[in-house]
């Protein structure tokens, strides 16, 4: 009995490891996509702007599950064959990237214009002003929103069961079909999700406190 439980927990932990792997890739890429596309939106670059609005709408206004099906089952029709692993991190990155684009666009817009003007008035070129003034202030503003998206990406990694990627939910489901121990297996899986999400949000709060601008009330 004792060894059975240990064996199940070990299996679940390996599933959790896979969930963390695709989530980490998806979250980092999502933030990267969000910063770059959000910055282009903020700069109002004509044609790119419209393309980005299209991308954001496409991924925010369709179900993640359908996006996963399209990536895994439809792309082979046009010659692109993705493994379950590739489908998993890519789906999370694209879906998260769409949300992060809006998070970072809003953060860039919230940076006070006066500070940007002051930098330009000193002779700092536009792109350098973006790197030294706009970006550092915007990142602080974006932390809370970006964390919410990241946590949702991690939770959504459970959708990858549908392409047969061996993440936590997939493993839990397999154990249940072998052992019929529904309550304890999904119970442990739930606790694992809960634990990771709690760590993520605690890390975000710690990060916010570390980057807090002394005396400034913008970041709480």
């Amino acid at each position: 009995m004792q060894t059975d439980l240990m064996k199940e927990v070990t299996e679940l932990l390996s599933g959790l490891g896979n969930s963390l792997l695709i989530s980490a890739i998806g979250i980092l890429l999502g933030i990267g996509i969000g910063i770059v596309l959000g910055a282009i939106r903020h700069a109002r670059i004509p044609v790119a702007n419209i393309a980005i609005v299209g991308f954001v709408n496409a991924f925010r206004c369709t179900p993640l599950l359908v996006q996963i099906f399209l990536l895994f089952y439809a792309l082979p029709d046009i010659g692109i064959r993705l493994t379950p692993f590739e489908t998993s991190w890519l789906a999370l990155a694209l879906w998260g990237g769409a949300y992060q684009t809006e998070v970072f666009r809003a953060a860039f817009e919230a940076v006070p214009k006066g500070e940007v003007t002051a930098a330009r008035a000193l002779g700092l070129p536009a792109f350098q002003t973006f790197l030294d003034v706009t970006l550092p202030i915007a990142l602080r503003i974006a932390i809370t929103g970006a964390t919410t998206t990241a946590i949702t990406q991690f939770r959504s990694s459970s959708f990858m069961i549908v392409v047969g990627y061996q993440e936590l939910t997939y493993v839990a489901n397999r154990i249940v079909s072998d052992t019929f121990k529904v309550f304890e297996t999904f119970g442990i899986a739930c606790l694992m999700y809960l634990l990771i999400c709690s760590i993520l949000s605690a890390a975000s709060r710690a990060f916010e406190r570390r980057l807090l601008i002394p005396g400034l009330g913008v970041v709480k």
Partner: peptide
């Protein structure tokens, strides 16, 4: 940008960089 280096400007609302110390506000550019 070269012209602006020769022409200093100070604004009504100071517009200091809030995320940088006083020293770094001066040395950044």
């Amino acid at each position: 940008n070269k012209v602006r280096q020769r022409v200093g400007m100070v604004f009504q609302h100071y517009n200091l960089f809030p995320h940088l110390t006083v020293l770094k506000n001066l040395t950044l550019v």
